[in-house]
């Protein structure tokens, strides 16, 4: 699963997801892209789940790109622990998603396959997504 190899600090502040995305909002490589309409935190397990579903359905002629990388940590305190005692331990790696962000890009497939994949990817994410294309 995706995670940084080296980090400067073990824990970070929770990244902000207010406002709209200004970067990574246009297709850079592929003909189709899966764009976030809603906002939320996407973790490495969700990205992996989406990757598997894309790889399974894209076929031999298709190619895909993962446009996001989970490089921020999400911490959690153990269960039944009272408040205090410092910040919890790292639990998972996340990426903050704001509306407009292109999450995945695909090429070498027809529109029907792209729509099918976009629907399957949408089921695996905690916010609404849409399919965008160059045409």
């Amino acid at each position: 699963m995706l995670m940084p190899k080296r980090v400067k600090y073990r824990k970070n502040h929770l990244p902000h997801i207010k406002g709209k995305e200004t970067r990574g909002t246009e297709l850079a490589f592929g003909d189709y892209g899966i764009q976030a309409v809603g906002r939320g935190y996407i973790d490495a397990r969700m990205i992996e789940s989406c990757r598997v579903v894309i790889a399974k359905n894209i076929g031999k002629t298709g190619k895909y790109w993962i446009k996001i990388f989970p490089d921020r940590v999400w911490t959690k305190k153990p269960l039944e622990v009272r408040m205090g005692g410092g910040k919890g331990d790292p639990e998972k790696w996340i990426f903050p998603v704001r509306p407009g962000r292109i999450l995945f890009e695909m090429t070498g497939i027809d529109g029907e396959t792209a729509r099918h994949i976009a629907r399957l990817v949408g089921y695996r994410l905690p916010f609404e997504t849409k399919l965008v294309s160059r045409v």
Binding site: M1, K8, R10, V52
Partner: peptide
């Protein structure tokens, strides 16, 4: 590779 990667629990190296 299509199969899902196994979940790793290891933490990255901390530079500081």
């Amino acid at each position: 590779e299509v199969a899902a990667e196994a979940e790793t629990v290891s933490e990255p190296e901390v530079i500081s």
